[in-house]
Structures are given as C-alpha cells and as structure tokens.
C-alpha cells in the first residue's frame, strides 16, 4: 500500500514538474558527423555563459531534418545538424509545417578518408579503380555490356596495383558517411563508364564490401589487424590514429586537412547547422548559441574545433557566413536549390 501511495505522489510531483518546466534548454538534433562539433560549442555556451547547456542528440542528417521540420512548437528542436545542405524536399516540408524562417550556418568541411594499416606500402587509387572494385556490376573487358563484378584482387583491376585481396570496410547503409561515399565516389566514377549511362546501382554484396558498424573506432581496429583491408570514415578518425593506420591517396592527393579545405582532395563535404528563427527570444540562448558557433575562436582557421578534427573554411568565406548569421539571413527556395546558406547575389 505504501508503494502505491509513493507512486501516486511521485506521479503528482512529476506532472507538476512537467507543467512548470520552462523551455530554457536548447535542443539540437541531426547529423552524427556534425554532432561532436556542435556538442563542443554547446558545452562552451554552458561553461562561459549562464545559459543552460544545450542538449545535442545525434539522429542522422535526414532524421534531424524530419524532427526539426515537424513544427515551431517549443518542444521541437531549435537547431539541426546536417552533413549536407538541406534538400528542396525537406525545405518544402518545413514550409508546410510552419517552419518558414530558417537561418543556416556553415560549420566547415569534413573529408571522407580511405585508409589502410600503417604497415602496408603506400597506396594510390583513383575513383574509377575504387568503383571497379566495389560496384555490383562493372563494364566487361570490351566495354559493351555490364557483367557481375569479377575482380578478386586489386591487381586484377590494374596490374600496377598490389596483389591484395579487395576488402573494403565501410559504413552501413543507414549512415550519412555511406551516403556521401556513394554519391561522391561511386556515382561520380560511374559517369566515366558510358555503358553505365550514369545510373549507378549498388555496391557488390559478395563479401568484398564489408559494412562495419556506425562506430568508426571499430573500423580503425579492424584495419590495424587485417593488413589487406581498406576502410573509409570521417577524417578525424584518421587524424587520431596515425600510429595505426595511414591514408590512401586518392588521384594522387593525400587526405590532409589542407587538401580537404582547399578542395583538392576529391571526397570532401560541407557541414551545416540550421536554426529555427521562431525560437529566438522564446528559448533562452538561441541566437547567442549560433553567434558563438560562428566566431573565429570556434570555427576559424585557429579555432578550437580544429583540434577535434574540423577542417575550417577559408577566412573570406567565414566572414560571409558570419555576416549572414548576424543578419539572420532567411533561407529561400533558391538558396536551397543552390545548396548554400549564403544569400545569392
């Protein structure tokens, strides 16, 4: 009987709390790639100001957009992280649900680096070679038809490549990293083969491509043990583990922070944070958070986020982003279609 009483009391207290809970905590959802950077800034906001530390949840870019665009109520998140620009379809959903005022912030770049165990000799691949190694169907020798992928070793594709078995450990199909890899490596390379007609289908499923977990640390550990295998993941994991793994050069370009920032490394993407302007003034710290995020000391060339793997954008670009954030530039349909958060001229 006592237990029942205490349960009723607890529920009563809980409901009291619920009704009294002021929305004084920012909520952020979205991409797992942007998550560490946003969390860092969230922590900084909590540490140097009197605002409550925002809560950051990693839901994936697409999942984040869905929750973010659900409405303008105070129980919806104020920001969403995205490791790609907002898609026109997502923008439409947002508009339809009343989330009409959105301001975007560009955070910086992330490179998808391909790596191998450090004990191997250096390796250089082209996108086309990776495509031939991993696609389900590849052009036949005479180039006239598509056949099931026959390649077992890298040397089967090009005699200059080592006689290593083809084994690529990568992200599972739910991951944004996998989306980017598919888009920037596989789809792009498929355009070099006319027979494909620009319609890349899918990665081979006969065991040469091994979907690892969402946890990139596990891929790093597997690479350290399996000398034949290659793996791909976000650049920060390569940087943290230089004692175990080494980057594979792509079209002759090394995956380094400089090469990713200036765009010479061919597999890099931009990261964004989108703000729901309707929450400014209703939830404490919303505009302070995005302004703190845009400062030089966070995402600038010498900013702290660089130490946890962010590849900062050039100075002039940052200036533009800062002005846009300060003016709370609203996202328009044209901007979304141009994959940018900056006002079009």
């Amino acid at each position: 009987m006592n237990m029942k009483k205490s349960a009723t009391a607890l529920l009563a207290v809980a409901s009291l709390w619920a009704s009294a809970s002021a929305n004084d905590q920012i909520r952020i959802v979205g991409s797992s790639t942007v998550y560490p950077f946003t969390s860092y800034v969230a922590e900084e906001l909590g540490a140097i100001t009197n605002f409550a530390t925002p809560v950051v949840e990693s839901t994936g870019s697409g999942g984040g957009m869905k929750i973010f665009c659900a409405g303008v109520g105070l129980d919806t998140p104020s920001f969403t992280n995205a490791s790609r620009a907002m898609k026109p379809k997502e923008f439409e959903t947002c508009q339809k649900n009343g989330v009409t005022e959105i301001t975007g912030l560009m955070v910086g770049y992330d490179g998808i680096s391909i790596a191998q165990s450090k004990e191997n000799p250096k390796l250089n691949l082209t996108k086309e070679q990776i495509f031939l190694a991993l696609a389900q169907e590849v052009p036949s020798k005479d180039g006239k038809s598509l056949i099931a992928n026959p390649y077992k070793k890298w040397s089967d594709i090009d005699a200059s490549l080592p006689k290593r078995e083809i084994r690529m450990i990568g992200a599972p199909s739910t991951s944004g990293t996998r989306d980017s890899f598919d888009e920037m490596v596989m789809e792009k390379a498929s355009k070099s083969f006319p027979i494909y007609g620009g319609k890349y289908k899918k990665i081979r499923t006969d065991g040469a491509y091994i979907p690892g977990g969402e946890n990139d640390n596990l891929i790093v550990q597997q690479l350290a043990q399996d000398k034949d295998a290659l793996g791909y993941f976000g650049y920060s994991f390569l940087e943290e583990n230089h004692d175990k793994i080494a980057g594979v050069t792509l079209n002759g370009v090394e995956p380094t922070a400089e090469n990713i920032a200036d765009g010479s490394y061919p597999v890099s993407r931009s990261m964004f944070v989108y703000m729901k302007n309707a929450h400014i003034g209703k939830i404490k710290g919303v505009s302070e958070f995005i302004e703190l995020y845009a400062t030089e000391s966070m995402i600038g060339q010498r900013g702290v986020l660089r130490t946890i793997g962010l590849i900062p954008m050039p100075k002039e670009m940052l200036k533009k982003v800062q002005t846009s954030v300060k003016n709370k530039t609203l996202l328009t349909k044209e901007m979304v279609e141009a994959h940018t958060i900056l006002p079009l001229k």
């Binding site: 905590q25 909520r27 809560v55």
Partner: peptide, 16 residues
C-alpha cells in the same frame, strides 16, 4: 532520445 550530449546533471524528471 536518451543517447544525447547532456553535460549538466539533470534536475527534474522532465528535462533531458
């Protein structure tokens, strides 16, 4: 949604 970055210890049953 309990796998999130929440550095502050929780103070009520309804906050993150």
């Amino acid at each position: 949604g309990m796998i999130a970055f929440v550095p502050d210890p929780v103070t009520s049953l309804t906050s993150a």
